[in-house]
Nucleic acid binder design. Sequence first.
RNA 1: GCCCUCGUAGCCCAACCGGCAGAGGCAGCCCACUUAAAAUGGGUCCAGUGCGGGUUCGAGUCCCGUCGGGGGCACCA
Length: 989
Amino acid sequence: MHAPARQTSKDELMSDDTPRHRYTAAVADQIEQRWQDRWDTAGTFHSANPAGPWAEPQDPRLQEGRGHLMVMDMFPYPSGAGLHVGHPLGFIATDVYCRYQRTTGRNVLHTMGFDAFGLPAEQYAVQTGQHPRVTTERNMEIYRAQLRRLGMGHELRRSFATIDPDYYRWTQWIFTQIYHSWYDPETVRPDGGTGAARPVSELVAQFETGGRETHDGQPWADKTAKERALELDRHRLAYVSSAPVNWCPGLGTVLSNEEVTSEGKSERGDFPVFKRNLSQWMMRITAYADRLVDDLDRLDWPEKVKLMQRNWIGRSTGATVRFTVPSASPGHDGGRPVEVFTTRPDTLFGATFMVLAPEHPGLAEIVPDAWPEGTDPVWTHGAQSPRAAVTAYQQQASTRSDLERQADTKAKSGVFTGAFATNPVNGRPIPVFVADYVLMGYGTGAIMAVPGQDQRDWDFATAYHLPIVRTVQPTPDHPEDQAFTGEGPAVSSANDEVSLDGLDVTEAKERIIAWLSERGLGEPTVTYRLRDWLFSRQRYWGEPFPVVWDDEGVAHTVPDHMLPVELPEVPDYSPRTFDPQDAGSSPEAPLARAEDWVTVELDLGDGRGVRTYRRETNTMPNWAGSCWYYLRYLDPANDAAPVDPAVEEYWIGPREQTVPGAPAGAQDPGGVDLYIGGVEHAVLHLLYSRFWHKVLHDLGHLSSEEPFRRLINQGMVEAYVYRDERGFPVPAAEVEEHTDPAGGPSTFTWRGDPVTQEQGKMGKSLKNVVTPDEMCEQYGADTFRVYEMSMGPLEQYRPWETRAVVGSHRFLQRLWRNVVDEETGAVRVADIPMDEATARALHRTVDGVRTDYEALRFNTAIAKMIELNNHLTKLAEVPRAAVEPLVQMVAPVAPHLAEELWSRLGHDASLAYEPFPEADPALLVEDTVTAVIQVKGKVRDRIEVPADIDEGELRERALATDRIRDILGDGAVRTVIVRAPKLVNIVPV
RNA sequence: GCCCUCGUAGCCCAACCGGCAGAGGCAGCCCACUUAAAAUGGGUCCAGUGCGGGUUCGAGUCCCGUCGGGGGCACCA
């Protein structure tokens, strides 16, 4: 917040003899505040809704053909740590884009709210001993002030925070909708696909009429209320399940899979996470796995993000194959089928052993009492019996964390179970092993091992002396000692009934699956890596569930008219946290302490009258609020629905044109026109939000199928980090640079001692934080905006360099000076016609800047405007007709300065809706151009030629210049390539 | 280990479908204004595109290999 003393004294000196009307930080500040007030008062950035509480159907922007645009930044989280110059980058970009789009006549919706529930606010509150609402609200105030100071053209009346009861009322309403839905894979959707969410009431009707069997065959009518609830939980899209979940004692809450890193730590806080069986709320996101993958094709998103989502969902298609293993249970003489999942059913003839995960539930049944005769000692680990060996291995595996299991993927451990399975294609007995390289959480927890075509199986086979059979012909150069995982013809893959020999992988898969299916030995299967979304948290600062439990242990949703279920005041809102390593601890919900709130008498309107219930004491994860906020932006005052359907359809309904790169014939999914945010939300927020949106679409609440039609990830603003000899960061602002007169790289010192320079994140610990407040103080918000946008392409990571900001300031100063006399403050533009060179420069700039703004290339747009401004600076008098369009063009990036100049130039209305200048096509084409004459690709001469010169003429003139005749001499010419009017390339023999 | 990205002037970045490597900015140097410095203005210097091959009349741009920075995934059957 405080400028270094050096800066202050500079300002003082400057104020002595700088011209009174120069564009300085002080002048900028004054102008900026004035225009921000005017925009606020006039409601300049209000957009028009066609329906709902804010319907303004007469607004001209709603006319046919005007177009509309919804632009969004990812929901900011108002942290207490304060902003640095990197944070507003994306916000400025969307603001510039929106301001430009308003001048093209579109109805533009751009606002910003706050994602205000969640862990950091709660942790910060616990640290400071204040209620999270107090600290959160204060942080939001700071945030709002900072956004305002930067000149954001947000529509403030549409802003809200997730903690507003008016908002979370609808978050709870959506939960209720999801809770009362199930996924019917048979339903045919309007788009022709199958599978959609439908009301649970339809499912209940099916059970009642007997149209659908219960899972255990017990008639619906015979089931108790609790049993019925359990039956429905098997289908609901929001359900309670008792399953292994991620328990994080350090945070005192459970976490979703998406919130756990690949190292098995919590994404927030980096605490260890343990698997524990706990009863928790889940969301059946897996029901939507296929649509979440398939619909990515219709979105204009970075390929990288699409890839991350595809990887996370991890769809793989293959087959389930049943192997028979003799049962070892007493009194059971038959075989027990063990299912495996494989993506390579074509290699079934090469399956020479089988592996089960240590946690596989079928193990107990198949392990015999004694080792079969002649068992290889390597297989047994020296154990007396198979049972002892398997138990010992299970024990050992259970103490190894997932991380440890994954640590050395080369050395495979495992032990023989003593059992042999039968390979269904050739009837051969194959040994069954237990090994922890097979995971219970994926597929069926059992694999057929095909060492010939799988490197992991090869490694295991080598270690345990197991046979290896190649059933796909490797390429000739393939090493002898490795599995062949590539494409090739099948070999050694035939029995009396079916032969795959000679078929390629795809054909072989089809044939063997058909054969297996006919015999009931298997069927085609798709599996996913995606798991259901763990939706409950044991925290205070989140949305309460709209759920109560009756004395039979059955959950009921609170009727919609009783929403919101407000967060109660509790004596102690801090979560119960534990030693981060204490895997045996159990979560405790802070809301459970609010006894008065938990026990409640309600009439749920179900005909049972007033009864006593206990409220659900878990809260929702902070992703809940950000799952649907874009919908609320559309219609924030709506009291009857989260969003009016007509409003939703107008703003984000499917478009006629699909997105670039969408498959031919695809239907546009709709969604927000432009969404800008960091790549860190690639699988969390973006996946959850897509899921909710699809449920709401299926239930008929939304016309669009996707929330975000176009996504851009803005790059991060990094900063230089300087370290001393010991490697400790030193304050970056105090480092001195020493340039090398010979042109070599610079060196750096801090207090006289040499330091090294590297590029890194901006942060307190690296002593390189620069804040937007400092920049506004030194140069003004407009300069800051221009600098941020001119640093490079939006998507790119770039280092912050405070001393370079002055370049943007000089640009605005020169523009100011072209309009305003620095000494007198009078407008000094001349009402004179432009000379031709100026007119051409202007129209070229208008054309280029328009294209650049459209494409979000703000850095090149700014460069073009600087170029034009520099041209105007050199003129004796600045023509009004040249500078006015320039002021308009600059307005999106430097809105305050532009408004001020526009007003001084004699215009009363705000620039915000002034139509963007049009380029005259006649002035874009040059009369003459410089043609380059190359000989063998090297530039040898240039000539001025008419722009419309024809090829033959240009060729003649090129061959006729003195220099070219000199170079060619008497040599013959082989070819002449002519690209009229700009280039001729002569190729001698 | 696999995949995705980015390497252009001392630094940040331009260069459309392969067609003159430079639009813009910072820093440096020189000059003007100034008693002086800062601020401001004017001018100027600076790379053959990480490296090695290939395709082409012509490659920063396309292809192959390789090195370096950043990121994602990682026993997923």
